[in-house]
Design a binder for these strands. Structure first.
Lengths: 205, 205
DNA sequence: AAATTGATAGTTTTGTTAAAAAAGTCAGGA
DNA sequence: TCCTGACTTTTTTAACAAAACTATCAATTT
């Protein structure tokens, strides 16, 4: 019985992997069930044997991706020597996650306004983990006596996360929405984030 | 000659006012030149006598709005007693500006990715004025010996403004990164910005 | 000449509908 | 239980006509 389920799980994984490649390369709407089935040399009907429909398949892939990301965060949880280190880790890991899977998220851009609840659920988990990581780091500093205790740690972390993500390139000229930052911009952003961290952490003490 | 131009200017103003009301109430795309002309009891063709086309008309209104906003900032320039006051004034004025003209900016939401250069030009002016106001406030505090400069003042202000713009809605649940904030969320965002100010200003001292 | 308009040309948006493509189902076979 | 080909239903696409809107201009008034 468990051998059977193992086989099923293996095939499920194969399907998830093939789907991920398609979604990543072509996006949700430009990927057909026939194509995924073709990549795996199986019939389309078999896909529907393993997954109820296309969007459920997509969300299963999404869940897997989110799981990997969460694992990265949780492995590091509580292993920081100071606040700056924690914040930098969070920002870099998040950025990497977004950039590496950029095309995968076209589903988000497409449905923009009303995404399925399952998506929000996953996003909620991610956000929770991020907040947990950073509040943990702050609390740790509080216990060490490096900063004074604050009441609304979560709110502070949320503001901090938002602020970090708001940092963009290009001094007085407004931000270009969809263009990826190139190397010189990455350094500029990095330096500005360091400055924000310095000021913000000082403001917490 | 100047009497003639006065008359023209008055009529231009009338057109700008009527256009502003339409744009504010219905947005750019749901406003027609016929409707504006109708409000003013003039022919549509006359609008084209005063303004080259619809988008130029819109941008003329925009320029006027930006001018009012800039004037508010400049009137207060150098009249602050402390840093927090200056930052609060900036954020509150900006918030009021956005809230009061929220529907007017649907043009931005519509064209999101590629806006005309003229728009960027106006936004650039606003950004410049904001930076001028806040750098002035910081310099003033530095001269009074109330704070010690941690870095280039302009850089600090840019980071602050970026951080402000990064503030988004959505506690632990939805994180609509890609969509424009909608009206109900503006107050929540405003509150989070106030928190950011509190911490940021403290971090500068 | 400057200001104004009705008529009209040119362009974009909005249905409408038929064909194509894709999602999703099912009876039945290994 | 796993799998498929054939089938049905839903969604997307394409083509095109009608409507709405922008923009122009010769003609008229002030």
């Amino acid at each position: 019985m468990s051998a059977v389920n193992d086989q099923q799980d293996i095939k499920r994984e194969k399907i998830l992997e093939a789907s991920y490649q398609r979604f990543l390369h072509y996006g949700y709407s430009k990927t057909t069930m026939n194509e995924i089935a073709g990549d795996l040399s199986m019939s389309k009907a078999l896909l529907y044997y393993y997954f109820p429909d296309k969007s459920e398949l997509y969300m299963a892939v999404m869940r897997k991706l989110a799981g990997d990301y969460l694992k990265q965060l949780e492995d590091k949880l509580g292993h920081f020597t100071d606040l700056r280190e924690a914040f930098l880790f969070q920002v870099n890991t998040h950025h990497e996650f977004i950039v590496n899977n950029y095309n995968f998220f076209d589903f988000f851009r497409l449905n923009e306004q009303n995404l399925p609840d399952t998506i929000w659920e996953i996003v909620g988990h991610i956000r929770e983990a991020e907040i947990k990581l950073l509040t943990g780091a702050i609390q740790s500093e509080v216990e060490k006596g490096n900063i004074k205790p604050v009441a609304n740690t979560i709110e502070i972390v949320e503001v901090f996360l938002d602020a970090l993500h708001g940092i963009k390139v290009g001094g007085s000229l407004p931000q270009k929405k969809l263009s990826f930052p190139n190397k010189e911009h990455l350094d500029e952003i990095h330096n500005k984030r360091l400055l924000l961290i310095a000021i913000f952490v000082k403001g917490l003490k």
